[in-house]
């Protein structure tokens, strides 16, 4: 758990990143607090899904599907707790995103900002898709699959994600 090491499979050379103690806990709590607090004063901030960005980042960096899905589950359940949604809605969505992000992170190099932008946009859309699916199947809420607002939110989150990931990179163990 202390140092960076390499996953070597044939020609691929993917580095697994470790972070300074408490980074994941601090980033998770910070993201949830900011998400719950800032929209009171700046409603536009609600477009961001910082807990999702944190889930994606640590999934892509740690590259361990089990860790990724458990982290996603915890973040999702905490987000559910701070929302009016039934417990499990964000939990399921972020569990799946955490799993996918860490699975993809183990196969691809996701350090380039362009790759991060694209992946975050795709994961955001997928996350919303999972939420809508669960709402339709389990909660009988006929939420729309796609809206322009959602597309804009995906782009905004992807852009903010790239900047956020840059700062989180500074917290890696060298």
């Amino acid at each position: 758990m202390n140092d960076a090491f390499d996953l070597r499979s044939g020609e691929t050379h993917i580095e697994v990143h470790k972070f300074r103690g408490g980074t994941i806990l601090f980033a998770t709590i910070f993201a949830l607090l900011v998400q719950a607090f800032l929209p009171v004063y700046w409603p536009k901030v609600a477009t961001l899904d910082l807990p999702l960005l944190v889930t994606i980042y640590f999934g892509l960096s740690r590259r361990n599907p089990s860790t990724g899905l458990l982290l996603g589950m915890v973040i999702g359940l905490l987000q559910d707790s701070l929302s009016k949604t039934p417990l499990g809605l964000f939990g399921i969505a972020k569990t799946l995103i955490g799993y996918l992000a860490s699975s993809i992170g183990a196969k691809l190099d996701t350090e380039h900002p362009a790759a991060r932008f694209a992946l975050t946009g795709v994961f955001f859309a997928l996350h919303q898709g999972i939420i809508v699916l669960v709402q339709r199947l389990l909660l009988a809420h006929a939420e729309p699959w796609f809206t322009i607002r959602l597309a804009i939110a995906a782009l905004v989150n992807a852009a903010v994600g790239v900047v956020l990931y840059f700062f989180l990179d500074r917290l890696r163990k060298s």
Binding site: N64, P65, S66, L69, G88, I92, T95, L96, L138
Partner: peptide, 19 residues
Amino acid sequence: SLVLLTIVVVVQVLLLALQ
């Protein structure tokens, strides 16, 4: 990890259903 994923998702679906 796939088995863990399945368990975690199923537990949360049950949690939703319970609520």
